[in-house]
């Protein structure tokens, strides 16, 4: 089963503990709600090939632990992420308040061009809502983030979140705003596009004799 895809994007899921990051990832990959979700230790990994605007994109997703004590072990995964899901729990203002810290982390540790989407999770718990849609979308606007509210429980908007983020990256690549060739962009060409780029690459390789750093 040769997985063919045009691009490979490195994604990051960050946010306070209990916001539902692991559940979102699980829902996205397994199409199921993860019933007995415990706190993540360190990082977990998941990948899925999605179709975005006619291109198949493989998403490599790192689901990080939100607990404070894991901050140091999760930092190394920020590097070179092309996209990030910044997750908070709409029923917990605390998780919302922590967003700024997470955002700074992401902007400093990951690639500066990282595409971040703000995700208000647990949309299904409308009655317990503590953060309004309006408030969050204002925050998103101010920080140049995309924004969606999701429910890992019902699956609402979960896939859409990833797709939206990927789509945005793809448009940036096409507009030249993002350069996949740049080190640490979090973007790689997949087999499918490699074949297309074969000639290109061979020429480039002649110029770049050694890139193992």
């Amino acid at each position: 089963m040769s997985e063919t895809y045009d691009f490979l994007f490195k994604f990051l899921v960050i946010g306070s503990a209990g916001a539902g990051k692991s559940c979102i990832l699980h829902q996205f990959i397994e199409n199921k709600f993860k019933q007995d979700s415990n706190h993540t230790i360190g990082v977990e990994f998941g990948s899925k090939v999605v179709n975005v605007g006619g291109k198949s994109v493989k998403l490599q997703i790192w689901d990080t632990a939100g607990q404070e004590r894991f901050r140091s072990v999760t930092r190394s995964y920020y590097r070179g992420a092309a996209g990030a899901l910044l997750v908070y729990d709409i029923t917990s203002r605390e998780t919302y308040n922590a967003l700024t810290n997470w955002l700074t982390d992401a902007r400093t540790l990951a690639s500066p061009n990282i595409v971040i989407i703000l995700v208000g999770n647990k949309k299904d718990l409308e009655t317990e809502r503590e953060v309004t849609f309006l408030e969050a979308s204002r925050f998103a606007q101010e920080n140049e983030l995309m924004f969606l509210e999701t429910s890992a429980l019902t699956g609402e908007n979960v896939e859409e979140t990833f797709l939206k983020c990927a789509r945005s990256i793809l448009t940036k690549i096409e507009s030249g705003e993002l350069d996949p060739e740049r080190m640490g962009s979090g973007i790689q060409y997949g087999d499918a596009s490699l074949r297309r780029l074969d000639r290109h690459k061979q020429q480039r390789e002649l110029k770049k004799p050694d890139c193992t750093c």
Binding site: I41, G42, V43, F45, S47, Q60, W62, R69, F70, S72, V73, R75, S76, Y77, R79
Partner: peptide, 17 residues
């Protein structure tokens, strides 16, 4: 492959358990 990715992203910090 996943393991390789883990290794390449590994910060070699002790995971607090």
């Amino acid at each position: 492959d996943e393991l390789r990715m883990f290794l390449e992203n590994e910060g070699w910090e002790m995971c607090p358990v």
